[in-house]
Design a protein around this nucleic acid. Structure first.
Lengths: 151, 151
DNA sequence: TGGTTATTGATAATCATTTACACTTGATAA
DNA sequence: TTATCAAGTGTAAATGATTATCAATAACCA
């Protein structure tokens, strides 16, 4: 954890931003809840536990900054809110998501499944791929089991 | 065009909705501007040319309805607005997008590039895929050329 | 025809996100 | 050390997309 904080601190410094206490508190929340896909509001409430005087606007500003630096990815699953997801350490690409249409849980696929597809896109469409977003919508394992039992 | 309107009319009837003049005007705009990725506001302005008395709320309601019936897909490229995209006739899956990070244009890939990837997801993650969203971010052909010339 | 229901348009309400602005902080130079 | 300055912050107000409300209208059916 501390190691990753250090890393992010350096990334900020490289662009001449500081890791202020508010920013650090926000990053810590993101690290602690790495598996979740938190909204700005969620993050705000969690950061408030560590740093009660923080303002919502600061959280938004921090998330925006982290987003620009590609430390987090801003995602949107179609409900009205943006969610923020830490990039895996050293990952060049955004990871994929499996969104269950029944229970709403979001699983992650860290492995990059798109290498072949990207090559195809670069060759056939002459489009130079820098990043991607891939989300599958469907039924997760648990809901499949529940459905089977119900029948 | 008329053929596709008929089709959509049937799809609505099948769920006991009607193709009102307002809904038809909205669908016509979507058909005419199929290549674009219009926001609700954009669509509203275009529909107003055909049916000046239409209200913005009706356009939203229509788009919501068409979305539920999977006649259109609601997409979000990260700017603050939802965009609406007609499904290609008979397409089981949402088509893919190439978003240029420099000029912002959005190209479409109709071909399904994900068949193999979906099989992998179903097998390895036991996730039953119903649909997907795939967007590539990068540099389009035109901007690549411009960049080369500039050097 | 009258009665019921779905649909609509205008408008107000909501809610996530941004902006404005005055205040704080922390670094730097005199 | 103290004055200065820019970056960063908190509060509150503003914005802008979307949704809800509600009275009026249109379509349908007995």
């Amino acid at each position: 954890m501390e190691h990753r904080i250090e890393r992010i601190k350096k990334q900020l410094h490289a662009e001449s931003y500081k890791l202020t206490p508010q920013r650090e508190a926000t990053v810590r929340v993101l690290l602690e809840r790495e598996e979740d896909h938190l909204s700005a509001e969620d993050i705000y409430l969690l950061v408030k536990e560590k740093a009660p005087e923080i303002g919502l606007a600061t959280v938004y500003r921090t998330l925006e900054l982290l987003s620009e630096l590609k430390i987090v990815d801003k995602i949107n699953f179609g409900d009205g809110v943006s969610r923020y997801d830490l990039r895996k350490e050293g990952a060049a690409h955004f990871h994929h998501h499996l969104v269950c249409m029944e229970c709403g849980t979001v699983e992650e696929i860290v492995e990059d499944l798109l290498e072949d597809v990207e090559k195809k896109v670069e060759n056939q469409w002459q489009f130079q791929v820098k990043d991607h977003r891939l989300t599958f919508h469907g039924i997760c394992r648990k809901c499949q089991q529940n459905n089977n039992e119900a029948n």
